[in-house]
Structure formats: structure tokens, C-alpha cells
Write a protein that binds this DNA or RNA. Sequence first.
RNA 1: GGGCGGUUGGCUCAGUGGUAGAGCGCCUCGUUCACACCGAGGAGGUCACUGGUUCGAAUCCAGUACUGCCCACCA
Length: 896
Amino acid sequence: MPHEIPKTYDPGAIEPRWAEYWIQEKLFSVKTPEPGSQEAAKPMFSLLLPPPNVTGRLHMGHMLNQTEMDIIIRWHRMRGFLTLWVPGTDHAGIATQMMVERQLTEQGTSRQKLGREAFIERVWEWKKHYGGAIQAQMKRLGVSVDWDREYFTMDEGLSRAVREVFVRLYEQGLIYRGKYIVNWCPRCMTAISDLEVAHEEYTGKLYLIRYPVAGDPTQSITIATTRPETMLGDVAVAVNPKDPRYTHLHGKKLVLPLIGREIPIVTDDLADPEFGTGAVKVTPAHDPNDFELGLRHNLEQLVVMDEQARMNENAGPYAGLDRYQARERILKDLEERGFLVGTKDHHYSIGKCDRCKTVVEPRLSTQWFIKIATLAQRATEAVEKGEITFTPENYSKTYFEWMRNIHDWCISRQLWWGHRIPAWHCQGCKEILVARSAPAACPKCGGSKLEQDQDVLDTWFSSGLLPFTVFGWPEKTRDQEVFYPTSLLITGFDILFFWVARMIMTGCHFMADHPQGNVPFKAVYIHTLVRDAERQKMSKTKGNVIDPIEITERYGTDAVRFTLASMASPGTDIAFSESRTEGYRAFANKIWNAARFMFMNLERAGEGACLTQGAPPAEARRLENRWIMSRFSRVAGEVNANLASYRFHEAANSVYDFFWGEFCDWYLEIIKPRLSGTKEEAHAAVAFLGDTFEGALRLLSPFMPFITEELWHAMYEGKAPQKSIALASFPALEQHRLDSQAEEEMAILQELIVHVRNLRAESKVEPKLKVPARVFADQDVRKLLDENRGMIERLANVEKLEFAEASLAQVAGVRTTPKFEVCIVYEQKVDAAAERERLTKEKTKLEGEMANAQRQLGNQQFLAKAPANVVEGLRKRVAEVEILLEKAHIALQKLG
RNA sequence: GGGCGGUUGGCUCAGUGGUAGAGCGCCUCGUUCACACCGAGGAGGUCACUGGUUCGAAUCCAGUACUGCCCACCA
């Protein structure tokens, strides 16, 4: 029997099978549609995927990201969109290089020893190895990647595009080369951008050092510094021109302690009279502020450290020492010779290298920069004008804040893995040639000894070009024409600046003439960040990464996906909780068993019964069916609306509540008798059940693709109308299915049943004992209850439903609602004390509500200003509460 | 120093102006044939604090406290 499914739900047995199937069937691959074709007529939805973090395994944060993307993509596909997602490429990730370098160090070697070619080869091997691992992981997650596309594209095509961009920017005057203070990591031995520096709070010391006046040792100026070792590179001391303490020394010279070099006193506003002693030592080669000041005053740039932050030959007696050793020695010497006036604690932050946590050293060096102002202006404008929208909205504020305070971008790196800078240095005349390919000779001096710049480009330089290079730019391809700009970018806020901002800048700049607009994407959804249970950001260096593969193996991918979706409320962080995952694993199990129940009943209904051929029209007129269809349609509407606004958690909750709380707990229980009734009844009931279940599976599918795929195919006994449920249509709100009357009637029945169960529990009726229930209600309700007495008697465990002709208010233990009064006929006296307590509590609550409501209704302002439906609702409620209060009162009296 | 968030039952979190919800945990009861990864019932919160706006505030505004994050070249 094709529709027989195993008794136990085992995600491990079904998930890998479908993951494999989706790939083999190329379910999610998209060919660029031909003009005029059927595909081309579909609405388009394309998504940009961030570059994978190639460090071996996806951590939970990436997983969330991909789950959200996958839900969106499946949802759009099921709604009939032509969907494409564009996997981001790992262009030149420096992280990989660092990993390989670490390996080399462990093996007692280094990249320098290995040589450039061999080193790059090693990085490649490493990337391919882990790239494969990532693909396998994504497959396991059920992520519908477009597998046809190349994952790693640090290929010649991309290199060409990168060179093209560089040359164009250079020709447009937007790239320049210059000698500046840059952030330098002495361990990585490369320049890094401002963004790659992590600031850490730190309590250090502020040292006060006395610099004597040249020719007059009785006078001196005391300066304050946190980095005494840099004094070896001092070329001046600056004071504020308006500072009266120092006016008498203007124009004089000071003697640099320990060294004896004479340095001038200069006046500059940089010196803040309020801070320290009001006098600043000036070290242009080792501090960005001093560098600027040095330019203003035409001062020498004296470099005293090498690329590994060791003191160099300019450091005199301290040459060869590490910067911290030098600091200690200098402090000791200063103290011994009486130059150290004092020290005090000082609170400040130090910059560390984002990757290796080495303290960054400001270093004077020649680097390549992008002049960012014009690019940033257009990029800001694109968001201001709403050409690009952010969700959650407030990230646009963060974006603007950054764009407004942006500095020129240092793009050169002294690394080996990456795109080489397309610049050649003439060995003869030192001319620098920027070109698309190696020039044969120097156009200036005719020399043929040309050497390519040793530096490579920042990872994010090439990554930032992704939105158009992925479509073959600079060629004008049809892909580019069709798919640019993409609809959506989903990513984490942590690469908002690194990547998103740069894509917007370059996209707008280079796609300026694209007919569909120059922005690289129309919407940016910033997904939530997953933290561990202690709310720490998961990071590889901290080692608190939850391994998604391990979690999926324990709970199943569907459960994990659902957990992530249900916790993904925009703008918040997620502390991953396994207990939630356990809960959703139980949900998957519930779905599985509901399906088993359905298949069992199909079997039982015998020859001719079918799940997928529709039910007879009469079936649709039954109350429970009208109700479940109405609820289903409403929920489908909610899910669509919530997904459209990236409210994954609400969408997931709606589906969950519907399936478990309404479909399983009520609907299945209600239809049980008919499923085992006459053959006609059973066939009709099974058919309607099949329709409902099939719809529910489609609704669930984006969230739990594996289990829904499995059950959906089982329902069609292997003859499904599509290759995959992911190609079926997604349920939508259908007005004609909404049936408020059915929903109201079912609500009354449910309420009655719950009250009776409650009464039984409180009266401690033995579970197996059926007792009669007595109800007083008006004609309409009575008719409703009478028509559904079978359901009530069974679900409430009632022997017989009886109707009373008069109010039951006098009966002990009666339960009252605005629609009916109900009690059970049971000789055992209710627990008077407990009942009194319950009633008193209820009464107090009602009285409170009443007082509140009456106060409002007596308020003219409220009546005048509140919306009519609110006032009306309150009036209705007051009428109800009045009755309930009176009844509670009577019941209490009765109890004595 | 600047900017952005968070503070809701024991725990983890929803709830963007109409009088508080979920999952887990807890308590009571129940293994008659979908499911103990279950079913039925229940307890548990003056929504951090203060003030303001409003007929009405968990929700909007201001301030306070605690807490998290991002950005920042003040020695």
C-alpha cells in the first residue's frame, strides 16, 4: 500500500532522501527565461544570499538566516513567482587565509617560507574542502539553493570584473594612493580598515612626562600620554595657542628626554587645555591626530617601529625591543632620571584586530583608498528615497548614521590571498600604471621592468560587487537584464556596513544605466541574531557555537527550522533554546500521527475511498466542515500577511495553533464517529478530511518542507500532480470559505464541552463514569446543541444531554455563560469550599470589570470619543457581566 | 563620548492604543484502537520605576534604574 507510512516519525529516515531528491530533480534551479516564454510572464522574485562563512561549519546564526530565506523562497514559489536566489560567493575571505596561516604555524612554517604560489594553492584546497562541507550542510537543512550555480567564484571572470571596477574608479578619480596612518595589525602584518578594528574598554595608565626647555633646565613642560614608547618618535610638543600657562614658552624648544633631541613647541587647537596638562607630544608617524597636526606644521614623520611593532633603528638604545618591552624600559629609565612626573589611572578604549585580537598599531604606510563621499551620497539617497527599504525599519537610521560619518576606505591589504591590485610599478622611473592587464612597457620612460603591486584588495571590495558581477558584468548579459536588481537581501546586521552598504554604493555607481534602476536590491531584511542560552553572540573564537547539524540530527531539520521561524521576530535577538525545539519536534510528531490516523481511516473506509478526489457537496454543508474550512482560510490569510511583512514568528504560531489546537484537538475528534460509520459516511468524511489535510500540508510546507513532502506524496499514493509540494499552490484567504456563523456556533459548542469537562474534574467524577448534563438556553442555542448532541455527549463524556425549562441558577455547581447555563447531574456533592472559593474569585473579577466598565460608560468623553464598536462591545459586555454577577451571587448564597 | 534596543507568569519569549498570551516547567486526573513526542482540567503576572499625553497605556512621550549591542582618531 503506497499510503502506508511507518508507525514512528523518524526525521532521519525521510529528510536526507528528500534533500537528495530536490537536488536531483533540480527543483530549485532557474534558467533565465526566454523573452515571451511562459516563465518570463511570471512575477519575479530574486534573492541575494550572503557569502557563506567558510570556516568549516555553518553556525546557528547562518542557519537562521538560511531558514528565513528558504521560507520566503518556498512561499513565493508556491504563490506562482519565478523565484531565483543568487548564492553569494566567497571572494577572498581573509578568515580563510588566517586559518591556513594558523595551520602553517602549527606545522612550523609560514607563508613567507612557502611562497606566494604554494600558499594560494593551500588556501584553495582548504576552501574547496570546506565549501563541500557547507554544501552538504545546506542540503541537510533543506535549503533550496540553486545548485546549478557555482558556489565559489574567485575565478578569472570575477577577477576581470574586479580589475574593471578598479580601473574605472581610478580613472574617475575615486581611487587614490597615499601615505597615511592606517590601522595596522602587527600579527597579520597588514593594513585593515576602520571596520575591522574592534574597540575594547580598557583601564590603563596615563603617564605624565616632563620635557625640559632647551637651554633652560629649570623650566619644562609636562605632557600626558598613554603610550610612552611613541615618544621616541616625537618631533614636537603642541599646546593650545590660548592656553596662558604656556604663552611664555611659545617659540622655544624642548629636549626630548632619554634621547636628547631638540623638538619645537608648536601651537595648535588639537591641544585641549582641559585634558591632562594641556600639552601634547606630537608623533606624526604613530598617531592619526598627530599625523594631521604634523602636516599642518610641516613636521618630520619619524617612524620608530617596524611592521611587527618592534622598535626600529630610529629608536636608538631601544631598537629591537617589542613595543611593550620598550614601554616598560622607557618608563623605568624616565623614572630613574626624574622625568616621570606621575601616573594616573585612565579609562580608554584600545583597538584590536577583529580576527586575531592583536592590539592594532597606527602605522604610517602607503595604501590605496576609495574616495567615498560621492558613492556614499548616492547610497544614502537610495534609502532616503525609498528605492531600498529596510526591515526592521530602524536599521535605516543606523545606516544613515554610518554613511554620514564615513571615512575614505582603505582597500589595500598586505596579504596574498585575494585579488591583486591592478597597478604596476615601473622599476625605472617609479611611475605607477593602473591597467586592466599588465602593460608591456612604461609609457613614461619606456622601461620594460614593471612589477605588479604586491598588495591584494580587501575582501569586501570584491564581495561588494556581487550584485552585478554575479550576472556576468561587465558583459551585458540577459541574466543581468532580467534579474537585476534583486528583490530582497536577507542578512545579519553584523555585515550591514561591511557588505550591504558597499553593495549599495557600487551597485548604484556601476548600474547607473540599468533600465530597471540602479539599486542592487529593493528590500533588505535584517534577520535576527542567534545567541546561545547565555545570550552571548555565537562566535567561533568563543567556541560557544551550537552545531546545527548535531541539533538537526537530534530533533530533525523540520523541528529546528520551525523553532527558528517561531523565534524570529524582527529586530530582536534569539537565545537559542532546545526546549522550544523539543516542542516543535513534538509538533512534527503530531502531524505525523494525524496523518497516520487519516491513512488508517482511509483503509477502514474500504474500497472506493479516496483522500484526493474531493468530497460530495453535501459534506461541505456540515457544521464542523464549514467551521474548519473557514478557520483554515482565515489562518491562510494570516500566514500570507505575516510572511509578507517578515513576521515569521506570527506565521509559524498561526499554523501551529491551527493544526494542533483546532484541527487535531477538535476537528479530528469531532469526525471520528463518521469515519467509522456507514460506508457512505466514511467515504465522504475521509474525502473531506483529505482535502483539509492536504491544504494544511501546503500551508505548513515552507516551514517544514520534509515532513510535508513525505506526507503529501503518501496522500497521492505516489501519483502526486507535481514533483514536489513545493510546486503546489500556497493556500490563500478565500472569502467564500469564510463562515462566521459556523465559527460562532462551534465556539458555543466548544465552550459547553469545556465547561462540562471542567465540572466533571472539579466534582471528581470517576473518569469512566458518564453522567447526564443539564442545559438551560434560549431556543436558538438549544436547537444548535440538540443538533450536535452526539458531539457534545462524546467529547464531554456526557451520558445524556438534557434541557431544562427554567434557569439553573439555583443549582449548586452550575456554570454560566451569556449563551447558556450548564450543570452535571451527579450525586456527589461538589466541594463546597473549593466552589465557594472559585465563585468568590470569579465574582471579584467580574465586579472589578463591571466597576471599570460602568465608569467608562458614565464618562461623556468616552462615549463621545471612543469608536462605536468599542462602546457597543462594552455595553454588550456589561449586560453579560450583569447576568453573570447575579448568577454568581445566587450560587454563592446557595452554598451558604 | 555618540547611537540603537531590551526590562511582561518559575524559565524562554510573543503581544505597535480597547483592559495580558504561548511553549517549556509545575499541580490534579487519564494509557477504549492517530499520537505519553499524548489527552482533559488547573495554578501562576499591580507588564522595571516615576511622571505626562489620552475617554482609555504593556503599547505613545519624557525622565530614572538596570542591562545588551553598535559606532567613535581626544593625548
